[in-house]
Structures are given as C-alpha cells and as structure tokens.
Amino acid sequence: MPDIFNIFIRSVFIDNMVFAYFLGMCSYLAVSKSVKTAGGLGLAVCFVLAVTVPVNYLIDKYLLQPGALAWLGEGFADVDLSFLSLIIFIAVIAGMVQLLEMVIERHMPALYMALGIFLPLIAVNCAILGGSLFMQERNFPTVIHSFSYAIGSGLGWLLAITSMAAIRERLKYANIPEPLRGNGIAYIITGLMGLGFMAFLGF
C-alpha cells in the first residue's frame, strides 16, 4: 500500500510527464491558452490514461512479455512477442479513445460536451503512449500499481497544463520582446516551471 501511494505522488510531482519527460508537449503548447479548455483537455488525458495503462498492463503481462504465454501451456513458455508491444499499445489506445467517445456521448452527454472535442486529439498525444511505455519499462508488480501510476501521471499533466494556461493568461499583459512572443516564451516558461518542480526531488 505505501508503495502505491509513493508511485502516485512521484508521478504527479517528480516524474511529471511534461516537466521531466516533455511528453504531450504538442497539445500542451497548443491548448494552454485559456484555463478552461486546458482543464478540459487535462481531464480527458487523465481519463484516457487511467483506462489505457491498466489495460495495456494486462495485455503486456499476459500476452506480450517473454514467457507471458506460459498460461497457454508448456509449449508457449518461450514465445516472446514483445516486439509487437508498440503496435498493440497504440492500437489499444486508438480503439479505447474511439470506444470512450461513443460511450460518453451516449451515457454522459454533459461530460461529452466538456471533453468532446479533445477526445479524438488524444489518440496521438505522446503522454498517453508514453504512459504505457513507461509502465512497461518500470515493471509494476500489480495492475493496481499501474493504475496508481496512470492516475498520478494524468493529474501531473493536468496540473502542468492548467498552471501553464493560468500563467499565459496573465502573460498577455506583459511586455515581452517581439520575437519571443508566443511559443518562444512558452518554452522558456515551461523550462522555468520544470526547474521549480525539480525542487520536489529533494537534495
């Protein structure tokens, strides 16, 4: 149990998707112009991570890893399908996003209105695939660990994009050198925020 909590806290603050690994930067820079839309996209990312990472965890553990097919019988114990993991992960993510979109549209129209336009964008958000790949690399012992990691990373991303959007809203009133406006200053601010987040590492 302390393990699970530890993973959660670490993935929100220390191994933050945006500040430590630059994942999901494209949509992070494109959609961080207002706090409201940023929050919407952040929630959607959180949601999709929380669904796809555990699903990919189970697929990885029981289908793809070397020796994962052992439950099928002796003869399958040597099969190593890990070279397929990338393709399968991305297929699961694309499929899940499509499925979620349909389910949410049908049963939760309010949420759909809030997330709707962002959901299709997410299939190609690196943070989502990154979540699954880091999950695979880090070898979590149980599916609960991977779930806690997914939620933590999602919240970390949400935190990053909403605070960035808040800063950019204030930035409109700042006197920035002409060539630096727009993306230039956005990169530098993200870098500075990243430096700030490094304080959570503790030295």
């Binding site: 500040f19 430590a20 230039g184 956005a186 993200t190 870098g191």
Partner: peptide, 12 residues
C-alpha cells in the same frame, strides 16, 4: 531536462 526547453525558447 528543463534546460532543453529554455534553449529551444532561445533558439526561437
């Protein structure tokens, strides 16, 4: 890692 972002900002 954050220095990479700041360098790109400077390049822009």
């Amino acid at each position: 890692p954050p220095m990479a972002l700041i360098l790109v900002g400077v390049m822009i």
